[in-house]
Every structure is written in structure tokens, then in C-alpha cells.
Design a binder for these strands. Structure first.
Length: 577
RNA sequence: UGGGGCGUAGCCAAGUGGCCUAAGGCACCGGCUUUUGAUGCCGGCAUUCGGAGGUUCGAAUCCUCCCGCCCCAGCCA
């Protein structure tokens, strides 16, 4: 079951594997030890009505992960019972995303729609057993008859129709004799049940709609409750894992499995869905962000979708790692996004190659450096990993540094470049600032410096130290690029906690930097490989890039304690005023 | 007021009567290292498990009551 192309995290998985790590694995472990099943079979059952998001990733990692851990398998099953909401585009995107996450369903790709005929037969069986009936009540009337949370419902006047009549009507429903909503098929259970799902739940409805897979073959469709458990049974699913809101449906799930002649007896288990701070994670809301243009699409790098994260440069392994770290339980939980971001940083720190790029360039001229000279300096691709090798970086008289790395009148704890101060240029030389040239507005537009030829490579033979190391890009060799920086899409931890979630959208979630300078090696950057721009963060090529114009997404910044202390001292200054 | 769940540090989360004077991760706070103010390393961070009673030699783990939070009244999933 283990995908052959899964990168990283394959090392210390020796004896840990079969040991239970959450309550669901406990159950599976116990079932297997007791010999209740020959092998574990789980499934991931998305409805193709939107793109997968990080919450789905949790479920995917759980279902495929359990299959892997216990030597079983996991099916990918599209739960396509509502043709009015589902589309082929989503079916394709979902498969791509699950694969990208590193999971493989092998031959086991299924669709609930594959079972429509069987499901229909089971519905007739229920009718024949006197356990289902055709109801002519309107949707409103059915609601009225359902009672309330505290009061029992009342029987529909059609509840006791003869079996023959029900059969005849149901067949006419299938034959397209009625309009949408004219009739439904209901399971006959108990209108007084405390569990509202057992008050004669609707199991088939009339929908004259084109289905992405079955086309016009059907005009009646089973709903979730009537389709899910039976589909599980058909596929011999042993552990049907879903989220907490389906807990109330389990009695109905079990009721159907019990009263139908199904090929196996699956069991449903529920866990808490994922919530993330500063993030919205419901399909309805994500759909709204997309359709109303608040983001550029499902794969906008600010979206918590799998495709958004992919485009943003998050490694699949980081998402899998995150899913493992947050665990699985039944407690409603809201995980801090920082936890996800920590996984991304950890993975990228280990795997991303380093490059140099200047986001907000400030030109520097070295006065004592030969006019037309260019040196090719050695730079490590990953100082923490020798096997990543090294590359050459061109250095010359004029280059760019980050505007933030120079201050004319630096505060105490600032130890980057300033007039008269010496710093190191990474992999290059020590330079000392001699002059800051300003424009008419007093804005610093260029720096004049001198360099010490003896410090080539970055070390002084006399052993003198320097407090800062700056990144830089040679002016004549620089590639121009646009860089897109992102912040959280929302300004509040729980968007919509008070009021409309759209009101909490962060209007500064996207910043476009137009005049960035990249070292030449970045010429062959790719969308799928996130690199570190030293001292800044992680970045990857965006799909909008062209041959003429490079565009990078900022995946995530490096931890920045300097910025943090700055913010703190600023806050203090504010307080004292 | 019906039914189903949940409550262990700022956020996740182990723990299922005695190795718990409660794992681990994130966050946070110190220190060391460092040609990324990154990384790495070291140390700190719940005498307490929603609350109150009770059972027991012994309880986060068992019992009782109470409090709080989430889900359910789609012909959505």
C-alpha cells in the first residue's frame, strides 16, 4: 500500500508501525487481534462538489494511513449521489490531489453511482418488506410532520400504503412519471424516535438532472444515508470512518445494514473534523471565496485547499506530517495554523536548496573593486546537508542588498549595515559602508562601500569578527522577478465568530513585489521545488510565470526573531507614550 | 425541555485505578553554537486533569450530581 514515490519520512518506521496511536487505530488493532476480518479495508469518500482541503487531508491520511499500518487497503470512492452539485472537474482534481499527497488507491477507484442499480433493488426490497413507503407530502409538509427536537413527529397519511401500491409508485418514480419533489421514498422506522434521523428518513428523491457519470439514466437518486453504508458493504469496507456530525446517523446506517441483504457488515466510526485558526474550512465558504472572486481560484496560494498549498510550495510530506502530529480524537478542536507552518518550515529547512534573492533592492557599489571583474564564488546548496552540493554565484562591483539590511541611524540592537560599519556578504567579502547616497527626498538610493580582498569567501585572516551576514545579488547578473507574498486570508482566529466571515477577510493577504532580483541559478527553478531564499524564507515558481517573466510565491518566511524583538520594542515605546 | 457527543497547559494530544509528584508536538521564555538574527543543541513551561461530592490503602482514570461546549428538525453530504 505504501506509495513508492513517497519522499522523506520513511526512516524510523520499524516497530512503531503496528502499534495503535489513536482511538480508531485502537479499535482496528483490537478487531484485527480478535481475527474479526481477514484484512482492513477503509475508504476515502469525497463528494465531488468542490476541491479537497486540509481537513480532507486529515481524513485521507487517517484512512490511507490505517490501511498502510495494518497491511490492508484504502479505496477512493466518489460519493456522487447528488447530480445537481457534482462535476467532473472536481472528480479529476480530487484524484490529482490525493495522488499528490502521496497515496495510491491502486485498482480501487469507485463511484457510488456504480451501485445505483443495486441500491434501487435494495429500496424495492425494503418496500416489499413493508419497511419503506412512497410519500406524497411536500417537503414543507414532511418537515411539519417531523416534529421538533423535543416533540415527536406524526405519521404521514401515506405511511400505510399497501406494498403493491408503494412498489408501483416507486417504479413510476424511476420511470420519470413525476416532477421533482412530487414524491419521495421513505424508510418506515419510528416517527417518535428521539433521533430525528430515524423519523422515517427520506432515502430516495426525484431529481431530473444530468449526472456526470450516469447521464440521464436516472431521475431518482438515493441520498447519503441510503447510499453510504450499502456502498461500504459492497466494497467490503471494514471500518467506515467519518466525522462527528454523522454520529447521529449511525443508528440508521446500522438499521439499513441489518435489514438489507448486504455482502458484508461494515461499521462506522467518527472522529472530530479539523479546524484551523485564521482559516475557513467548509466547502460552502471556500466555494463562496472562489465564486465571488475573493481569491483567484481553488488553487489560490492563500486557500487551505490541497491545490492551494501545492501551488504555494508546501511539501506533501509536511501536510502528512501535520496530519500525524495533530492526532485523531473526538474533541472539537481548532488547531493553530502555526502548527501547520512549523511542519512546513521543518520539512523545507531539511530539504530546500538555498539561493539568494533580494526582494527590496538597494544598490551597492564597491569603490575599490575592479571595474569589469566578475568572480564565481562557491555557495552551498544546503549548509545543513553536504550532499546537496554547491553552486557558483557571480560577484561583481555592483550588487543589490535588502533595503532592510541598511540603516543610516541604527538603533542599538541592529547589527546589519550602517555608515562606517563592516558586515559580511554571504560567501563573498567583508564590506564597509563609506557613504549613503540620497535622492532629493532624502531617500537612500545607493550605498558606496569598500571591500577587504583578504576576506574572500567570508572569513578574515586576522580573525576579526563581524556581527552580520547579508545576502546579495550581483547587479549585472540578476534576474528580474515578481514575488508574491501572502499573509493569512483572515484577520481573526475564527473567521465569522462574530458576524459574517467575509468581513474578516484580510485585505492585505497578498503583496506583490515587482522589482525583485534573483541570482542566476534561479533560472531553472520549478513549480514543484520550493527553495529557500537565504535569510528570507521559502519560495517556489508560480504557474503564472512565463519565459519572459519569473513569478515566485512566498511559501513561508523564516522564523524572524529580529522582527519579533523590533515589534516588542515598538510596542513598549507605544506604551510609554 | 428530546437524541447524540465532548471537556487533560495558550493550541493540539497521550493516558483506560498504583511505575502519573501527567508523554509528545506547536507556541512561549532563557542559554550555547552559528558565514542564514535561520537551523541545531541544552534548559524552563499543568503538585494538576471542567466543578463538587463519594468509593478505595491509592483516582485524570470507578460512582453520583452539577457546569460548560459541539452536533441533529435538507427531498445536502
Amino acid at each position: 500500500m505504501s506509495p513508492s514515490n513517497t519522499p522523506v519520512d520513511s526512516e524510523d518506521k520499524t516497530e512503531e508501525d503496528s502499534t495503535p496511536r489513536d482511538f480508531i487505530r485502537d479499535i482496528v488493532h483490537e478487531d484485527m487481534s480478535a481475527g474479526r476480518y481477514p484484512s482492513v479495508i477503509t475508504r476515502f469518500p469525497p463528494e465531488p462538489n468542490g476541491y479537497l482541503h486540509i481537513g480532507h487531508a486529515k481524513s485521507i491520511c487517517l484512512n490511507f494511513g490505517i490501511a498502510e499500518d495494518f497491511g490492508g487497503r484504502c479505496h477512493l470512492r466518489f460519493d456522487d449521489t447528488n447530480p445537481t452539485k457534482e462535476e467532473q472537474e472536481y472528480i479529476d482534481a480530487i484524484q490529482e490531489d490525493v495522488r499528490w499527497l502521496g497515496f495510491d488507491w491502486g485498482e480501487h477507484l469507485y463511484y457510488t453511482s456504480d451501485y445505483f442499480e443495486q441500491l434501487y433493488d435494495w429500496a424495492e426490497h425494503l418496500i416489499n418488506e413493508g419497511m419503506a413507503y412512497v410519500d406524497d407530502l411536500t417537503a414543507d409538509e414532511i418537515r411539519e410532520h417531523r416534529g421538533t427536537l423535543t416533540e415527536p413527529g406524526t405519521n404521514s397519511p401515506y405511511r400505510d400504503r399497501a406494498i403493491e401500491e408503494n412498489l408501483d409508485l416507486f417504479r413510476q418514480m424511476r420511470a420519470g412519471k413525476f416532477d421533482n419533489g412530487a414524491k419521495v421514498l421513505r424508510a418506515k422506522i419510528d416517527m417518535a424516535s428521539g433521533n430525528i434521523n430515524l423519523r422515517d428518513p427520506v432515502i430516495y428523491r426525484i431529481m431530473h438532472a444530468e449526472h456526470p457519470r450516469t447521464g440521464a439514466a436516472w431521475c431518482i437518486y438515493p441520498n447519503y444515508d441510503f447510499a453510504h453504508g450499502q456502498s461500504d458493504a459492497i466494497e467490503n469496507i471494514t471500518h467506515s470512518i467519518c466525522t462527528l456530525e454523522f454520529e447521529d446517523h449511525r443508528p440508521l446506517y446500522d438499521w439499513l445494514i441489518e435489514h438489507l441483504t448486504v455482502p458484508s457488515e461494515p461499521h462506522q466510526y467518527e472522529f472530530a473534523r479539523l479546524n484551523l485558526t485564521y482559516t475557513v474550512l467548509s466547502k460552502r465558504r471556500l466555494m463562496e471565496l472562489v465564486s465571488e472572486g475573493h481569491v483567484a481560484g481553488w488553487d489560490d496560494p492563500r486557500m487551505p485547499t490541497i491545490s492551494g498549498y501545492r501551488r504555494r510550495g508546501y511539501p506533501a510530506a509536511a501536510i502528512r506530517d501535520f496530519a500525524g502530529r495533530i492526532g485523531v480524537s473526538k474533541a472539537n478542536a481548532t488547531v493553530e495554523v502555526q502548527s501547520l507552518e512549523a511542519c512546513v518550515r521543518e520539512n523545507l529547512n531539511e530539504n530546500a536548496e538555498r539561493r539568494m534573492a533580494v526582494l527590496n533592492p538597494l544598490k551597492v557599489v564597491i569603490e575599490n573593486y575592479p571595474e569589469d571583474q566578475t568572480e564565481e564564488l562557491d555557495a552551498f546548496n544546503n549548509p545543513n546537508d553536504e550532499s546537496a552540493g554547491s553552486r557558483k554565484v557571480p560577484f561583481s562591483k555592483e550588487f543589490y542588498i535588502e533595503r532592510d539590511d541598511f540603516m543610516e541611524d541604527p538603533p542599538k540592537k541592529f547589527f546589519r549595515l550602517a555608515p562606517g560599519r563592516e558586515v559580511r556578504l554571504r560567501y563573498a567579502y567583508f564590506i564597509t559602508c563609506t557613504e549613503a547616497i540620497k535622492d532629493d527626498n532624502g531617500e537612500v538610493i545607493e550605498l558606496r562601500c569598500t571591500y577587504d580582498p583578504a576576506t574572500k569567501g567570508g572569513n578574515a585572516p586576522d580573525g576579526r569578527k563581524v556581527k552580520a551576514t547579508l545576502h546579495w545579488v550581483s547587479a549585472n547578473h540578476a534576474i528580474d522577478a515578481q514575488i508574491r507574498e501572502y499573509e493569512h486570508l483572515f484577520t481573526t482566529e475564527i473567521p465569522g465568530a462574530e458576524g459574517e466571515f467575509l468581513d474578516d477577510i484580510n485585505s492585505d493577504s497578498l503583496t506583490v513585489l515587482a522589482n525583485c532580483k534573483l541570482e542566476p541559478a534561479l533560472q531553472d527553478a520549478s513549480e514543484s521545488e520550493t527553495v529557500q531564499f537565504e535569510r528570507l524564507g521559502y519560495f517556489c515558481l508560480d504557474k503564472d510565470a512565463t519565459a519572459e517573466k519569473m513569478i515566485f510565491n512566498k511559501t513561508i518566511g523564516l522564523r524572524d526573531t529580529w522582527a519579533k524583538t523590533q515589534a516588542k520594542t515598538q510596542a513598549k515605546g507605544q506604551q510609554n507614550k
